[in-house]
Design a protein around this nucleic acid. Structure first.
Lengths: 162, 162
DNA sequence: TTAGTTGCAAATATTTTGCACCCTT
DNA sequence: AAGGGTGCAAAATATTTGCAACTAA
């Protein structure tokens, strides 16, 4: 699959702005005794204005369009901070770079991924969620998180003959 | 989690021998016009006699105990061949090295992973499998494969206070 | 001023590839 | 003989870290 193919085809999701994130992020930063910074805000803002499931190489590219001096390490450090703060989560659908997804104020969901065009569709299935708990219980596990990814051909790709 | 911790704790699974694998592997090798080799057999045999969900660094270590001259590249090449032949599958539970799992003659299953001790438990839930199909259908997807991983604390780790 | 933040380069970690030489067919 | 298999080193990919200079508190 060509790099970045999925970007344009991805389904729209509710978008949060820097304002939505600023509160929780500030609280986390303060609690850890860290400082605030303009570059961090720029990275967060750029991430929020991009499509979901973004790789950090693409994010850096977008950040540099506004401030060419920003380094890759800072992007990694910033996203790791957001992850520690529980505002974003990482996804690894295929091999290759880890993708980041905003989770603040969004309900849990899992993913359907088209192996041909890269389309990513989010889904929630309450029955599956409940059955998971049951399975975990049967094995004595206390469930903390899960990852449920289904790969196949999306409707468009099925039509256009894969 | 300490490297390799999960190895000893992993649940036993039906073990296949080189004899089980030799037939399908030979057929695949012949169909692709490849040659056979002793080192390949040694790697396959060593993989089969190890626990499930093995990383290639650990596999190389075990292979070198029998033949110190073997190189890492050959281990990668051999396991990639097995994967192309549909005999093994890769798993990526956490970050870090990809783990390999034999699938020949084994029914599909998913995984429960203990985030504290690394225990890996395999499970199958027919109801979940069926619901997955339904979800895929609702979104117009033709499902080809899926990955369902649940992370939490196993019974032992819950008892010993995590 | 104290301590976190940043860019850059170097280091890690994982996996792949080029190439000369060896082994199968 | 022809062509795949192997080890080694180098490359490629993804991510992290050391460090000196910069900036927030």
């Amino acid at each position: 699959m060509p790099k970045g193919t999925h970007a344009a085809k991805e389904e729209a999701a509710t978008r949060r702005t820097l304002e939505d994130v600023r509160g929780p992020l500030r609280a986390f930063v303060k609690a850890k005794g860290l400082h605030e910074s303009k570059i961090r805000d720029l990275i967060v803002e750029t991430f929020l204005s991009s499509q979901e499931h973004l790789g950090l190489d693409q994010l850096l590219e977008r950040v540099r369009a506004k401030n060419p001096g920003v380094g890759m390490a800072t992007v990694y450090r910033t996203m790791r901070l957001l992850e520690e703060a529980g505002l974003v989560q990482t996804r690894n659908f295929n091999a290759g770079p880890t993708l980041y997804e905003m989770v603040l104020g969004r309900p849990h969901h899992d993913h359907l991924i088209c192996t041909r065009c890269g389309l990513i569709v989010e889904f929630v299935s309450e029955p599956i969620e409940r059955l998971q708990e049951k399975v975990a219980e049967q094995h004595g596990f206390q469930l903390m998180r899960h990852r449920h990814e289904m790969f196949g051909l999306c409707a468009d790709c099925r039509r256009s003959g894969a």
